[in-house]
Design a protein around this nucleic acid. Structure first.
Lengths: 218, 218
DNA sequence: AGTTCGTCGATCCTATAGGATCTTTCCTGG
DNA sequence: CCAGGAAAGATCCTATAGGATCGACGAACT
């Protein structure tokens, strides 16, 4: 019998989750100054757990720290940084798809298939975008988990956090295409076809990069 | 005229560097409990910067945190984790070598050649091992930097920190082989030969894995 | 008019104190 | 001799206060 190990969360962890969500959902916008005392007041905690949470967020690159001048939310990605991120995604996620195709368990394959056909309906723009982003992140994490490499999964998760530093962009018209690409990856992994899985992932990421690149044309 | 931007370091950063070195050099051994108040007394600072440093170290996986029970130094790698780490190194560092071969600047190529022929002499066992490890890490970082991808370089650096979680092992008899492998990589990169650079890196890592694997045979 | 200096306000950084929790040790009973 | 429970000690977690530094505004000088 395995008990779910009741999670004894600390205040610092709660603050961390809250701040992380705020940055990822652009409630705290890139470039914003982060006032430790102010945040502590708003969250009704002491500055100490806030400092702890910010130290972790800085280690992940979501906020920047200037000594004796405070924290600021990390600025938006430059075009070069954006391209670098997608180069990394191609490197990591293509390998993840390949490994997942050869090593995933039966349960992982079926869950991947199930999730890949889900679609997001209803809600206003903000809700819809949040839900779609979450689903996308979840799918990619499923593949990363199925790769059987904890380190690879963690690296991909870290990278996806940086993706949120990118300017918000709503590819409404292309969700059908995105869903189709996801399904092709899932199908290839389910069929234990590493080559096809890697190719499908490469195609998906290459197209996703192009879809997002329009944000830099202004 | 460019001034070297005097670094205004904070106490928290100093504590972080100190603790990080202590963990990496096994002054604080895997599994050891970390006493916040005790460390603050020893370092003659308040617990606050110590907490901040530990939060960052936890984010990097060098220490673990159990709520309401304190921090402990991360345990030694299991055999599975060790293999996973080298799978990741193969994925990341082979790509780094390939990219470095095609994109490195002239200055980077020459520095890589210079450093790859350096050897470590003298000192007692501890000093010698520390110097050799530092040189190895420096070489791999040079290649990662020459890849032109900041994210890739950071990922590799993060991975190398985990390498120190591995049991100490002194391959005295094999340093000549290691040096030779390093030089082959450097030569290939200098010759702008991506295929050879990747192959040399793959060979180096594969052999390094075997050299370290003996630590698990007991 | 432009620049420099000094003061003010805000913020960060560090230090200390009190409450809650876990670990350890000791004791009792079977 | 071993298992279970309780109390003491140590530690972590949180809250608050004081010192130091940075940025900004205004005045005086060149």
């Amino acid at each position: 019998m395995t008990l779910p190990r009741l999670k004894r969360s600390t205040l610092g962890d709660d603050v961390y989750d809250t701040l992380r969500s705020a940055v990822l959902e652009h409630v705290m916008k890139p470039g914003d100054r982060v006032n430790i005392d102010g945040l502590a007041r708003d969250l009704e905690v002491s500055p100490t757990p806030v400092r702890e949470a910010l130290a972790r967020l800085e280690s992940e690159g979501l906020v920047r720290k200037r000594p004796l001048a405070g924290y600021t939310v990390s600025p938006l990605l430059t075009r070069a940084e954006f391209n670098d991120m997608f180069d990394m995604r191609l490197l990591l996620e293509c390998a993840a798809a390949r490994w997942a195709a050869s090593r995933a368990t039966t349960a992982q394959r079926s869950e991947l298939l199930t999730e890949s056909v889900r679609t997001i309906e209803g809600g206003d723009d903000r809700q819809w975008h949040a839900a779609f982003t979450a689903l996308d992140a979840h799918l990619h994490d499923l593949i990363a988990a199925a790769s059987g490499s904890p380190l690879l999964r963690e690296s991909i998760a870290r990278l996806h956090a940086h993706l949120h530093l990118h300017r918000r962009y709503f590819p409404y018209a292309q969700t059908a295409v995105t869903n189709d690409e996801h399904q092709q990856i899932a199908t290839a992994i389910n069929a234990t076809d590493p080559d096809a899985a890697e190719a499908a992932m490469r195609l998906h990421l290459t197209r996703a990069r192009e879809r997002h690149l329009v944000a830099f044309q202004e």
